[in-house]
Design a protein around this nucleic acid. Structure first.
Lengths: 408, 408
DNA sequence: TCGCTTTGTGTGGGAGGGGAACAAAATACG
DNA sequence: CGTATTTTGTTCCCCTCCCACACAAAGCGA
């Protein structure tokens, strides 16, 4: 049949990479897109037109380019203001938070943190999904997926939470299944399979890699504390290193203080128990408050009293030395090109970056840790944005999934 | 121009994956190749014909299939007996070894181990290359690349040896540059850039993944001893995890015995000094011989006296416990689906697999180490074969590089 | 011998992208 | 102010690659 071609039919297989370039902010104009994709201008034009037609990006023809060099100014690429969104949810010690996240990691709408903590994961996740569905109803935007961040290792391929932190959840709760059930119940539909679920530190690392301090890194290591314990994540070539069963980067049990305190893992002096907020408060001689406020309490103390209080400074130095030793061990094994710190570790970096850098250099082989940049997290709600990244992934892999007849 | 097509022009982009399937033994017949590639029979046929025309594989039309099920028997795919080879070389404590390696990891020809140890890396590498060139002259086969394995971490992108073990080499010797110079001097040419150089344990792991005990693994961890120290490697999705500067998997400095012996890295009780052949001999109360015989001495002792000598058994148990602790730490961080042990560690696995497995399970989080298979190296000269893999890689990525006018 | 199953082979067509030529929109320069 | 230059977008033609399809070939079983 000799059909009438209303839209360009070219540039299909380059569609995903092109969208990813716009999504991560690496293709501000069509000319840059052409160069980054390594295709001809014709192909890049067709790709941009297709993405525009799918309602994902905008192509501004005449932007009165402020900083033009010479020649015809290039069309500016942007993220469609009314494009589709994904539903992102996060469960934490105090409850949950839900949000709608568009391309580019922009949080379109979010609930305030809501305080529901329950022994039944279906309870909290159900409320979070309901809140997200409410946000979705508020905007007229299409939903193309959903992602959930939980403060626990998530085992693959089952999607079960192995060590829910600060939560009274049963060990091994099938959080992904619960999340998907809740989505179905709330009537949240997506053009592809969705309901992705992951560990919050992992997802935060993914978000930092795409939209934050980790941009451009090829081997990004993230280490962060919550209220208790230490989590890690590695983003390699743009993808999370999850290991064979989703449980990689459990970095909390590196031994950093051989004569240190007992850890529930059976060893002594693990990173988990020597560098978390509780360890800091105890080292500084403070009385720890309730578990779900440990992070706040410790960062406030560190920020407020590091200069003035000798015991706080000594505690900080102790944690910096131990953290540095742990990071050096990870440098030896993973050889990252950048390290991002979160939670209390980010504050430790702030108060004495020099000391931490020196310890990492000194305790790594050939001092190569000294060449690895140490940075702070830069995104608000990076776990939430990371959960959204999971949900966006099918679209980034093949934007044409949106072409199918709109389901809902 | 209306050219005459003498050969099928189809199936170009699938050429690399197809060759890799034959290379790794995963496509014994054309029908399997069709299924594995996920293409039509027509395409697979064109691909096979093209590879055959390039002189890389054979396609046996009527093999009188012994184990036929039903239907028309499929053509059998094999590696061309007179196909191209790569030059592989390995430097070790006692000297060097050179070989020619064909597709499928088959060692076509090899020199016996030759005993040249010199403070000048150019000396040994030059002799190894000359020996390889001699082998090459002996066969009439085409050379498509060269690879070198050295007992040292190799820093990228410079290709310098940072910690040559058992060798009097200067630290930071530019081994890849030296290797390439030697190749040029010996007149060894290849259709692509070549002269790849890597760490011997890393390359051994790569070889085991493609042709040995690691086949089919998606997250393969290898840990092995030489005469002194412990090396590690991770093969992920078929590629070596080298980290951002080639120095990943320096696993020797995980702390496994907090009160243990001093290590040159500044810490105490590193895997490097607690589980290597020297540590074993000392623990068993034996007098260590010359450094370049430590591995042989320790494995002989372990094999011969484990059953009969109480002190040997106790030493073995001590090393197994420490190794298990180190492996458990690596399981926590890397989450492999298989672990392969080499050198003395392989012998430790042999004498008491049960004990090692139990320690790994017990000391890993959620006992998940117990689910990871522990295996021995299965290939002879796996570092040599791994060096050949590096050299084969450009051809596996795009077999058409061989189509260019034959240079030499 | 006739099905049935599986595999190999040829043909047409469609998808997707490269390349060249041309048009458009800015700056540089006289 | 007009022209040359530079850079970008667009259109058209062509080539490459692969799938779908039809058909042939080679085994097994009744």
């Amino acid at each position: 049949m000799t059909q009438i071609r209303t839209r360009p039919e070219r540039g299909r297989s380059a569609l995903g990479p092109a969208l990813e370039l716009v999504h991560t902010g690496r293709a501000p104009t069509r000319a840059v897109l052409t160069a980054e994709l390594g295709v001809t201008r014709a192909t890049a034009g067709a790709v941009a037109a297709e993405l525009q037609h799918l309602g994902l990006i905008t192509v501004d023809a005449s932007p009165t380019t402020g900083a033009a060099s010479q020649g015809r100014p290039s069309h500016r690429l942007g993220i469609a203001p009314d494009g589709p969104v994904v539903l992102a949810a996060q469960v934490h010690a105090d409850g949950y938070r839900a949000a709608l996240v568009g391309l580019g990691g922009q949080v379109v709408a979010t609930t305030p943190g809501c305080g529901t903590v329950d022994a039944d994961p279906a309870q909290v996740i159900g409320e979070a999904v309901a809140a997200g569905a409410g946000l979705l109803a508020g905007t007229g935007r299409r939903c193309v997926g959903a992602g959930l961040a939980v403060p626990s290792a998530v085992a693959e391929p089952d999607g079960t939470a192995l060590n829910p932190l600060h939560l009274a959840w049963p060990v091994g709760a099938p959080v992904r299944g619960i999340f998907r059930d809740c989505l179905a119940e709330a009537g949240v539909r997506a053009p592809t399979e969705t309901g992705f679920t992951g560990n919050d530190v992992n997802l935060g690392a993914l978000a930092e890699h795409r939209h934050g301090a980790g941009r451009g890194s090829r081997h990004l290591l993230c280490v962060a504390t919550g209220h208790r314990g230490v989590g890690g994540a590695l983003v390699q070539g743009g993808r999370l290193h999850s290991g064979s069963s989703g449980l990689a980067l459990e970095v909390g049990h590196l031994v950093v203080e051989p004569q240190g305190r007992r850890c529930h893992c059976g060893s002594r002096g693990c990173l988990d128990v020597e560098t978390d907020p509780l360890a800091f408060l105890e080292a500084a001689g403070r009385t720890p408050g309730p578990e779900s406020s440990l992070l706040h309490q410790s960062t406030e103390l560190l920020r407020g009293a590091y200069e003035s209080d000798e015991s706080v400074r000594a505690a900080a130095h102790r944690l910096i030395d131990l953290l540095g030793l742990g990071l050096a061990g990870l440098v030896n094994i993973l050889d990252p090109d950048r390290i991002i710190l979160g939670g209390l570790h980010r504050e430790l970096l702030r108060v004495d970056e020099e000391r931490l850098r020196e310890v990492v250099a000194e305790r790594s082989l050939w001092r190569r840790g000294g060449a690895v940049p140490l940075l702070s997290c830069t995104l608000d709600h990076n776990s939430l944005v990371g959960a959204a990244e999971l949900a966006w992934q099918p679209v980034l892999d093949d934007p044409l999934v949106l072409q199918e007849d709109v389901p809902c």
